[in-house]
Simulated assay, not measured.
Amino acid sequence: MDDNAKDPTPDGRPALGIGMVGYAFMGAAHSQGWRTAARVFDLPLRPAMNAICGRDADAVRAAADRLGWAAAETDWRALIARDDVDLVDICTPGDSHAEIALAALEAGKHVLCEKPLANSAAEAEAMTAAAESARARGRFTMVGFNYRRTPAMTLARRFIAEGRIGTLRQLRATYLQDWLVDPLAPMTWRLRKDSAGSGALGDLGAHIVDLAQYLAGELLTGVSAVTETFVRQRPLPSGGGTGEVTVDDAALFTGRFASGALASFEASRVAAGRKNSLRIEVNGDRGSLAFDLERLNELSFHDHTEPAEAAGFRRILVTEPDHPYLEGWWPPGHGLGYEHTFVHQARDLVHAIAAGTDPAPSFADGLRVQRVLAAVEESAAKNCAYTPIVD
Rank of each mutant, 00 (worst) to 15 (best):
R13E: 03
A64Y: 05
D358W: 11
L289S: 04
A385N: 10
E266K: 12
E73W: 07
A130Y: 06
T227M: 13
H207S: 06
E298D: 05
L79Y: 07
G241A: 05
G33L: 01
T221C: 06
F342C: 01
A156L: 13
G328I: 03
P10D: 15
N4D: 11
R135Y: 10
M20V: 05
A57W: 04
R61W: 08
V181T: 05
W329I: 09
A311W: 14
E106W: 10
S277Q: 11
D2H: 04
E327S: 11
L278T: 07
L236Q: 12
A62I: 09
V111I: 06
W329F: 13
G222M: 03
L184N: 14
R286L: 15
G287A: 00
G217V: 08
G287M: 01
N383D: 15
L180K: 12
A104F: 03
A103M: 05
T167S: 13
V21C: 02
K109L: 04
R46I: 07
R139W: 06
T174P: 06
V226I: 14
R256P: 09
W189T: 07
G197M: 02
E123S: 13
D7F: 11
L16T: 01
Q345N: 05
G166K: 05
A63K: 03
L117M: 00
G138A: 06
T229N: 12
R192P: 01
